[in-house]
């Protein structure tokens, strides 16, 4: 921990970080703004996504993630700002972008009353693909749905639906995948399989922009942008985020942790107490205050204290706690999310 930075940090563009090696970013947007009526959903959003990266998009509900993704692929016209996606202008060349982007919606949005094969075939026709039968067969093979290709898509379980949707979005071999909370409501095993697939695609050079709520998914991303109230608060390589946020964490193990947690709660300097398995992680931004708050408890019998680097998970709990649901009534305080 060198110096403490506030959570709201303007970070250097990612392209300078060395990862992209000067290559033209797949997405580069500046000052994107979108309002619906008098409500500004996205406000002055800048972002640069290097080729081949898995870019995680985090933020509370209603923070503007979906709207931003839709603007990037030309589904929505921004009120302000500009940018390119795969080298095409996001305002004027949305058709070219749509041809080359795979977009997966938050909610399953293929036809439940068509069979798996019919759905894939329909999507192949939408993109006017050649060798349609061959491509659909290959996709079915990849998905492991060859035997069930005549089953209605609506009869699939949540995890399979997501895989099918991903397969459909990949049918035209896009260079960029936009995934809007792809694993919402999917069981943990299916989620893990889904992410394995995303890593495979990324290895093949596909750029992936994925929004998520799950922190175990966020840590799998190469880069993370954190957005709240339509504004980007953090944007950095995943590994550098804890350092940037500057959260200090103590890990406590031992007996009577529930009691300890109750006693520490609300003490000045103690901003967050989170349970990780059998241990407590106690974190705060102000080193002096935090140390002072925990001092009386450090020598307690049967408890061991250990200072450690804050992990991504703690950092995100911290960020989430600071920003409440954006639809909450004005005047509500951070951390009072309903």
């Amino acid at each position: 921990m060198t110096e403490q930075k506030p959570a709201v940090t303007e970070e250097k563009p990612i392209a300078d970080e060395g990862h992209a090696q000067g290559a033209e970013p797949v997405i580069r947007v500046e000052g994107l703004t979108k309002s619906f009526g008098d409500k500004t959903v996205v406000d002055g959003f800048d972002m640069s996504v290097p080729r081949g990266a898995i870019y995680g998009f985090l933020g509370p509900n209603g923070s503007g993630k979906t709207t931003t993704i839709r603007m990037m692929c030309g589904l929505l016209t921004p009120n302000g700002g500009s940018g390119t996606c795969l080298g095409f202008d996001i305002v004027k060349q949305s058709r070219q972008i749509k041809e080359r982007v795979g977009y997966m919606t938050q909610r399953f949005s293929l036809y439940e009353d068509l069979t798996i094969r019919e759905n894939l075939d329909f999507m192949a026709r939408m993109y006017r693909l050649d060798k349609r039968r061959q491509r659909v067969d290959a996709a079915l093979e990849d998905l492991g749905l060859k035997d069930r290709s005549h089953q209605l898509a609506g009869q699939l379980s949540g995890g399979w639906k997501q895989r099918l949707a991903l397969g459909a979005a990949m049918l035209h071999e896009p260079d960029l995948l936009l995934l809007d909370e792809p694993t919402a409501g999917v069981d943990p095993k299916a989620r893990r399989d889904f992410w394995d697939e995303i890593h495979r695609l990324s290895d093949r050079g596909v750029t992936v922009l994925v929004s998520t709520h799950y922190m175990d998914e966020a840590v799998q991303c190469d880069y993370i942008a954190y957005i709240a109230y339509g504004k980007k608060l953090i944007d950095a390589p995943a590994a550098k985020i804890p350092e940037q946020v500057g959260l200090i964490t103590y890990r406590v193990e031992g007996d009577h942790l529930v009691e300890l947690s109750r006693e520490l709660d609300g003490k000045p300097g103690v901003e967050q107490i989170a349970r990780f398995g059998s241990a407590l992680h106690i974190s705060g931004m102000d080193e002096t205050e935090l140390e002072a708050a925990i001092a009386p408890y450090r020598n307690r019998e049967g408890v061991t204290w250990q200072r450690q680097r804050a992990g991504l998970e703690e950092v995100f709990i911290h960020l989430m706690a600071q920003s409440f649901d954006n639809f909450a009534a004005p005047g509500a305080k951070p951390g009072e999310s309903p």
Binding site: R95, T105, S109
Partner: peptide, 13 residues
Amino acid sequence: ERGTMETLISTPV
């Protein structure tokens, strides 16, 4: 209503 319009309009149709 079923959300399939979203997929449809994300294609070049």
